[in-house]
Amino acid sequence: MNLIVFTKRVPATQEEELRITGEGKAVDLSKVPFKVNDWDNYSVEEAVRIVEKSGGTATAVSIGDAESDEVLRRAIAMGAKDGLLLETGDVFHDPNVRATLIHNFLKKENLPFDAIFTGVQSEDDQFGAVGGILAAKLGLPFVSMVIGIDTVESDHLIVRRELEGGLQERVKVMLPCVISIQTGINEPRYVSIMGIRKASKVERKVYKAADYQDSMKSKIEIIKWVYPPKKAGAKILSGELESACKELLGILKEKGVYQ
């Protein structure tokens, strides 16, 4: 089985204070650390496991600036055979643009594959759309929210997709196909700094995104960035930790859940 797996480098914004600059023109990410997109980490792991079990290769692909080489090295350290970078200094917010770029690239380079794996969503833009758009452009079947791959055959997969409230559905999908992987499908292996350093010895191929930009006009416009609408918000228990904690216990007593 030859698998192409997408991996994206994203800012780890969970614990950072984000500032909008230029009256809504940009979000300042200059001091934010970057990491692999959580969903893609699970997706690379799943691709590598399939290849380890039934042969073939996993090829990792990323779109981004030269720094994205980092997530490709990481994918190689996990077991991907190759890492391909579609290099661009631009950030394409529109998922249609990213899917078109990938589509053009796969066609022009004629990369062979049995299945393409993406993550369900990017942590930063949360579009959750690149996999589905790409599948339709390629004329291939698509399944998203994949939380289990039960059967791998030469012409089809049987997968479980996650719905709401703990419910799943089992779906049969013919190959080649595009699937989007949900977190929790597996336990991604640990990657050491040593492992990543070793992976650096495998040459990563760099392609210029500009060479694949046919019909890549953005279909949506970003007008500006804004902070979330403020609701009333929480009453913050401030002061010394001791007094805040005592106040918290007081609230628990008042609500009748703690005596």
Partner: peptide, 8 residues
């Protein structure tokens, strides 16, 4: 952060 988007 929220983005204000418009379809082109």
């Amino acid at each position: 952060i929220f983005g204000e988007f418009k379809p082109s």
